[in-house]
Amino acid sequence: MEPEQEQEGILTCANLGGGLGMIAMIVGEIANFAAYAFAPAILVTPLGALSIIFSAVLAHFILKEKLHIFGVLGCVLCVVGSTSIVLHAPQERAIESVKEVWHLATEPGFLVYSGVVLVVVSVLIFRFVPLYGQTHMIVYVGICSLMGSITVMSVKALGIALKLTFSGSNQFIYYQTWLFTIVVFFACLLQINYLNKALDTFNTAVISPVYYVMFTSLTILASMIMFKDWNSQNASQIVTEVCGFITILSGDLSPS
């Protein structure tokens, strides 16, 4: 085979692989979006750690990257923690209208949380980004994580609206559905912007676990405040879930 043909074949394979990867990512995000409509955020969000396991295993077999003992330990911890959370997760509360979600979102507790998030994010953007954005990754990661918790709550509301609409009860006749849609749109744009800045400035291997830990912790806190996930559970179930979450975090932060 001529060198030009070989190079062209390599580029074609690379483009095909990139296209398949993009399709797989889009399908995965759609599935993740749908999951929030059927399960509490306290269950869906931590299970994102399972992607780490699949990535590590596929990298070991396909990319020939060696998975050493700490990587194996991290995968095991993620599996154990995820299993614990799945077995003791709270039941999804029955919601029959997006107005119910709006009522939960406008209760004093979540309004205070949202206000604190917006104030802290504004301070980080206008005060700390110009001064410390290029030297302290926590600035960019903090913005993404704080806004991420609000994004997930809005995504869950929008997911519920879509689920009810597909079931025959149109939720897009209510202005609340469109408000949640607008929040999702702008919050996602803000996150993408600052996450890209973080990845351009700092090591991805460091950004990913720190962002996962902060984002997941704040999302669970927001879900507890807004949907009161733990109100229907006893102390032992709550402690087990917390232990499972800490186990996942330990596995995620294990050196890979």
Rank of each mutant, 00 (worst) to 15 (best):
G21S: 06
G21N: 09
G21W: 04
M22H: 11
M22R: 10
I23S: 13
I23W: 14
I23A: 14
I23N: 06
I23Y: 11
A24V: 08
A24E: 09
M25S: 13
M25Q: 15
I26D: 10
I26Y: 15
I26R: 07
V27K: 00
G28W: 03
E29D: 13
E29L: 15
E29N: 11
I30E: 07
I30C: 15
I30L: 11
A31P: 08
A31W: 15
A31D: 12
A31S: 15
N32Q: 10
F33L: 08
F33W: 14
F33V: 11
A34E: 13
A34Y: 10
A34H: 06
A34W: 08
A34P: 01
A34Q: 08
A34C: 09
A35P: 05
A35I: 00
A35V: 02
A35K: 05
A35R: 00
A35M: 04
A35Y: 01
A37C: 07
A37N: 03
A37H: 01
A37P: 03
F38H: 15
F38A: 12
A39D: 14
A39V: 07
A39E: 12
A39N: 10
A39F: 10
A39Q: 12
A39R: 09
A39P: 07
P40H: 01
A41R: 01
A41Y: 00
A41Q: 04
A41P: 04
A41L: 11
I42E: 02
I42N: 00
L43I: 02
L43H: 06
L43R: 03
L43T: 03
V44L: 02
V44Q: 00
T45Q: 14
T45I: 09
T45V: 13
P46A: 01
P46Q: 03
P46W: 01
P46S: 05
L47M: 08
L47C: 03
G48H: 09
G48Q: 12
A49S: 12
A49K: 00
A49R: 01
A49P: 04
A49N: 09
A49C: 09
A49G: 10
L50E: 05
L50K: 04
L50S: 07
L50I: 11
L50T: 09
S51H: 15
S51W: 12
